[in-house]
Design a binder for these strands. Structure first.
Length: 318
DNA sequence: ACGCCTACCTGCTTGC
DNA sequence: TGCAAGCAGGTAGGCG
């Protein structure tokens, strides 16, 4: 198996990687590791200590939380891999040519290598004590305050709910939206509001829900919340069903392009016709992120009087 | 709470 | 053609 993902792993992409790794490396033993880019190893482990601590570990299971791959070790510890922008985990067969973008290489007992590849070096790998992942009721720890113990649960202590969890109901989304004046797009990208949604799936979910990205969260009707809830879950589920192939330069182990890139409705379709109404897709910038929407299907934001700095159509480019 | 800014990085696209 | 500026965006941290 080889992965050549090069952009934007969000929940469906990370889930796909985790499921594949579960099939391929569960049970494997890590005999040694090389850290080729120090900063890839997250605080608090220095790279040399990380290598010492991972040496000899056996992988028991691979899962996902938010946008991180969780590599559970047989002794209860957990290695977290945050892929960020360009990170990828690759299982390379014995004798495979080296990869200049491999930042951390794990040597497996059977001769294969588990490679963490990341051209832009944004991703981070951490090694933590187990525990705390199920404890949803975290106290509001302040930013920068050190956790009591470096448990994996603490790493995700400020993350919001998993949108595909059965407990993530429309009522729960409504409760989280209540009293929030932020824009919908901003909130969907906020990992403490909801975990795993990134720029692509945020735009897709809003298009599917027919909601404008600049709508204030606290102006949604009950029906609109229901639509948003359903849309978030359906775009993520569809992404997973298509193996998370949500970007054009993605190819799988056989070099075949993924399918989901052709199924995106608005993302990077600026100026192209909306699949529902034919209106050209607009592009604006929200929170420094490019944002794509249909100006007709997703009608203009309901704003508080005088608080709208500019009409959303002003930045439309073709 | 919210929005905006910068830094982290490098490959690709765009424009002259 | 060649080169440089601009763009892409997940996340942490800082400021107002």
């Amino acid at each position: 198996m080889a992965w050549h993902t090069s952009a934007m792993p969000e929940l469906p992409e990370v889930e796909t990687v985790a499921r594949d790794l579960q099939r391929w490396v569960a049970g494997a033993q890590i005999t040694d590791a090389e850290v080729r880019w120090e900063r890839t190893i997250a605080h608090p482990q220095p790279a040399t200590l990380f290598v010492e601590q991972i040496r000899g570990a056996r992988i028991s299971r691979v899962g996902r939380r938010a946008k991180s791959v969780l590599v559970h070790l047989a002794d209860g510890r957990v290695m977290t891999v945050a892929l960020r922008m360009t990170g990828a985990l690759i299982v390379a067969p014995p004798g495979a040519p080296d990869d200049p973008y491999a930042r951390v290489v794990f040597h497996l007992a059977d001769g294969r290598e588990l490679r963490y590849r990341d051209p832009r070096k944004f991703g981070r790998i951490g090694l933590w004590e187990g525990g705390g992942l199920r404890a949803r009721r975290h106290r509001g720890r302040r930013v920068g305050e050190a956790p009591a113990a470096y448990r994996v649960g603490d790493v995700f202590g400020r993350h919001g709910p998993e949108p595909l969890a059965s407990t993530f109901s429309s009522a729960r989304l409504a409760a989280r939206l209540h009293g929030r004046s932020a824009r919908l797009k901003t909130l969907l990208l906020d990992q403490s509001f909801i975990a795993g949604v990134g720029n692509i799936y945020a735009d897709e979910a809003l298009w599917r829900a027919r909601l404008h990205p600049l709508r204030r969260a606290d102006t949604l009707t009950r029906d609109e919340v229901r639509r948003l809830h359903r849309s978030i879950r359906s775009v993520l589920r569809q992404g997973i069903a298509n193996r998370g192939a949500s970007f054009s330069d993605y190819v799988d182990a056989q070099g075949e392009a993924g399918e989901n890139g052709e199924r995106l409705s608005v993302y990077r379709r600026t100026g192209e016709p909306c699949y529902r109404c034919g209106t050209p897709i607009s592009r604006i910038v929200v929170g420094q992120r490019s944002t794509h929407f249909c100006p007709r299907c997703q009608p203009g934001p309901i704003s508080a009087a005088g608080s709208e700095p500019r009409p959303p159509a002003a930045e439309v480019s073709a």
